[in-house]
Design a protein around this nucleic acid. Structure first.
Length: 801
DNA sequence: TCAGAGACTTGGAAGAATCTTT
DNA sequence: AAAGATTCTTCCAAGTCTCTGA
């Protein structure tokens, strides 16, 4: 079963990963059709090693270090406008649709009207002052509720306005749109120089920088207390790029900046901190006003009109300039990411749409009208020459369609997977080395949910996936355990030690023979060849489909297995079951996160809370001893109980009770003061001081009693034995729940659930599960996920992946 | 045929918003 | 109401995989 092996998550920092760079020259294990290692492998192993050696030969010398560097930035080609003629076919469609959406909206808003006035229910009663307050409170409460309801209503309205593409017939997939209008992209505001009194210091002297070089300096200063500033590569890349800028924009007070060590950015950093604090200190209303203003400016860019429908654009804000924050050992981290200008940007827009004007001086690099792609704008970023795109938002029809198609493709695999597994199991013994390697790679992709593992360049972090695994990443531990230890995507460590099929173990042993640590395990497999093979087994099948398939099928299976437990479960219990399944998938996919900074602290808090509950339990037990010691003996094993509660000793109890007493006393006094305040406001006279005194006395006596009971193993019975028993029962449950919460939380501290939820778990599984178990989907999906998955919301409760 | 351009999905972290506690 | 904790959203880096042109 997939997921059988858990990837143990270990912080990447501790990774003992081979630091050797990939050796790019290909090793040349030659093993071909004539290879005899098809013969019973066990028997073949020995003689083969000899035979193998003979076969190692320099296959070709031109396999020497390939020029891995990416080509210099080249002019991106702009497609000719050639799609005009396709447009006419669908012409009627969009217009019709537009009309119907409009109608739908109107009906919605009419619906709403009758709801509004119901809220004023006035109660008439005795005391007018009291009444006033009650009214005010009620009003406030109603106001809150109304706002909540409004919010929900608005969300529902938005959902209703969504184009229900999943109810339409599927159309040709190569053409993504017919008409497309948009406002282009939003450029960040220009750089604002620092106030004249804020200056960096070089070699003890303040430096007067012109805006261009000051801006870059500021990028670095802002990161002074982050890990980045501790990183040598980051620092040297930054400094090199900054020096270039300084070359054309040198300090105005003729200081020569030469050594990074002599730079002191602290004053600038401190200024930024102050600004941050100021911003934070604004009142809620002020913050809200600022946000509204921002939203208003950005509003035109936030939507586009595609085939006559208004849809949300995703990342319409152009990335501001800054320092490139590559992950892991990225050789370019710290490099200056330049400001993007209109001249860098190609717009993709409908042929008949007005060309928008950039919100900063300049002209677009190019305009194209390619309706076979979904992007609205693109540019090439200067650090790695990678392409950046502006796409529609996740909730748009275009994204929704391909998302659904992804899951449908994964479901299709259900019908093929048995055959595929059978095939690769056979091929694990293939006499053709390439096939045997491919089968082994497929085994890993299928069983361990590894990524495909494309080749990477020298100017990227050294990370690998299945096909690019090197010998140093896999260690064999007889009889059949393989230890994987490598850095995967985002330089996240993958560490796992699954027991594998004997044949797989043997194969890896063979693949590693006569190779160096830095040589690829699968020298005969590339992602392209692997995917080509997969495509032959099932149309559209690629390595990544296995990840989706295995994630979703695992999730579905896990939930189904828990079905019995769900029958009478409370909501938190249901949620726990759901999250546990989610977490198993996240572990399968090795989705990690940095443990929250406050984790240890909140663990400690929970521990303390549980200890308090155990104290309560102890007290109840002691009561039971006093009330009915027979019952007690029947029900409890003193040994056990004392064992678990051995940390609750008299000293601790004393402390704890003192603390409790203090809290209770304060609470009583506060309540008294508050009550009186209220009475004063209502024009009533204050409660007499004796009231409070009696109350405080009561508390004190109670705790004095507790103090006396300390160490006696008995407590004054309050109520009858029966009642105490039920209370005990409840408390037991509560403690168990808290304990399990705590251990779940601890186990999950380094597991990220969100990635699988967003990308790998078919949302229909969740929707159906919620319906079947009477859970509001909104409890499981955040607002963004709700908007991302409108197409999943209508499945029946018995829908299965 | 294959390298690299191109387009799109997936990923963790930072920052913002919201909920909970004090 | 402020502070602290938790959850959600945004950001943009880093993958996958297809297409293209020499």
């Amino acid at each position: 079963m997939p997921g059988a092996h858990e990837a143990t998550t270990v912080p990447a920092s501790k990774a003992v990963n081979g630091n050797g760079k990939a050796k790019k020259s290909k090793p040349t294990v030659k093993a071909e059709a004539d290879d005899d290692d098809d013969i019973p492998l066990a028997a073949a192993t020995k003689p083969k090693r000899v035979a193998k050696k003979a076969k190692i030969e320099p296959e070709s010398d031109e396999e020497v270090p390939k020029p891995k560097r990416k080509a210099a930035p080249r002019k991106s080609k702009v497609k000719e406008e050639s799609d005009a003629d396709h447009d006419s076919e669908e012409d009627g469609g969009p217009k019709k649709r537009k009309r119907s959406t409009k109608r739908a909206k109107k009906e919605e808003s009419e619906d709403e009207v009758p709801d509004v006035p119901k809220k004023k229910r006035v109660k008439k009663e005795e005391d007018p002052e009291k009444e006033k307050i009650r009214l005010r409170k009620e009003k406030e409460k109603e106001e809150r509720e109304r706002k909540k309801a409004e919010k929900i209503k608005k969300e529902e309205e938005e959902a209703a306005a969504v184009f229900r593409w999943w109810e339409q017939d599927k159309k040709d997939n190569s053409q993504k749109w017919t008409t497309l209008e948009h406002q282009g992209v939003y450029f960040p505001p220009p750089y604002e120089p620092l106030p004249p009194n804020v200056k960096m210091i070089y070699d003890g002297k303040t430096v007067d920088l012109p805006p261009d070089s000051e801006e870059v300096m500021g990028f670095y200063a802002a990161l002074l207390e982050t890990e980045h500033a501790q990183d040598e590569t980051f620092n040297s890349n930054f400094f090199a790029d900054w020096l270039k800028v300084l070359g054309t924009h040198p300090p105005r007070n003729s200081i020569k900046i030469k050594a990074f060590d002599k730079c002191d950015f602290r004053p600038v950093f401190q200024y930024f901190e102050e600004e941050k604090a100021k911003k934070k200190a604004l009142t809620t209303a002020e913050k809200k006003a600022l946000k509204e203003e921002r939203d208003k400016i950005e509003a035109p860019y936030a939507f586009c009109i595609i085939d006559g429908r208004k849809e949300k654009v995703g990342n319409f804000r152009i990335e501001p300039p800054g320092l490139f924050r590559g992950r892991g050992e990225h050789p370019r981290k710290g490099a200056l990411k330049q400001r993007v200008r209109p001249e860098d940007i190609t717009l993709n827009i409908g042929k008949d749409s007005a060309i928008p004007k950039p919100n900063m001086p300049g002209k677009w690099k190019a305009i194209q009208h390619d309706n076979t792609v979904t992007w609205l704008a693109n540019w090439i970023e200067n650090v790695n020459q990678s392409h950046k795109y502006v796409f529609l938002a996740a909730g748009s029809s275009l994204k929704g369609q391909s998302d659904m198609a992804k899951f449908e493709k994964a479901r299709e695999l259900k019908d093929y997977v048995d055959q595929i597994r059978e095939d690769y199991t056979v091929e694990l013994k293939s006499k053709v080395m390439a096939e045997r390697q491919r089968a082994t790679a497929m085994y890993f992709i299928d069983k361990l949910a590894l990524r495909a593992g494309n080749e990477k360049g020298e100017d990227e972090a050294d990370t690998v996936g299945c096909c690019s695994l090197r010998c140093e990443h896999v260690t064999l531990e007889p009889p059949n355990v393989i230890i994987f230890d490598f850095l995967g995507k985002d330089s996240i460590r993958y560490y796992n030690n699954p027991a594998v099929e004997g044949q797989v173990f043997k194969n890896v042993k063979i693949f590693k023979e006569n190779k160096d640590e830095g040589d690829p395990v699968f020298d005969r497999v590339t992602t392209a060849s692997l995917n080509k093979h997969l495509n032959n087994q099932m149309k559209g099948l690629t390595a990544k489909v296995f990840r989706t398939y295995n994630a979703s099928i695992t999730f579905q299976t896990l939930l189904d297995e828990q079905q019995e437990k769900l029958k009478n479960a409370t909501f938190p219990e249901k949620m726990a079951i759901y999250n546990a399944a989610n977490r198993q998938v996240a572990i399968l996919c090795n989705h990690q996160r940095a443990a929250p900074k406050t984790h240890d602290q909140s663990m400690e808090k929970m521990r303390f809370k549980i200890k308090g509950l155990r104290y309560d339990r102890m007290k109840l037990r002691h009561q039971l001893v006093a009330l009915d010691s027979k019952q007690y003996k029947k029900r409890f094993d003193k040994e056990d109980e004392e064992d678990e509660d051995s940390d609750i000793d008299d000293d601790w109890i004393e402390d704890y009770e003192t603390q409790l007493e203090k809290v209770e006393l304060e609470k009583a006094m506060k309540k008294f003061a508050k009550d009186n305040e209220k009475r004063a406001a209502d024009g009533q006279e204050a409660l007499p001081q004796e009231d409070l005194d009696t109350k405080l006395e009561g508390i004190k006596t109670h705790f004095a009693e507790l103090a006396k009971e300390r160490g006696t193993g008995k407590a004054k019975g309050r109520g009858d034995a029966e009642k105490v028993m039920t209370a005990l029962q409840k408390l037991e449950e509560k403690i168990a729940l808290q304990k399990s919460n705590m251990s779940e939380k601890d186990k999950g501290k380094e597991v990220a659930l969100s990635t699988s939820k967003i990308n790998y778990l078919d949302p229909r599984i969740t929707v159906a599960w919620c319906k079947a178990n009477d859970v509001d989907v909104r409890k499981m999906f955040s607002k963004t996920l709700m908007t991302k998955f409108p197409w999943a919301m209508e499945v029946e409760d018995d829908w299965k992946f």
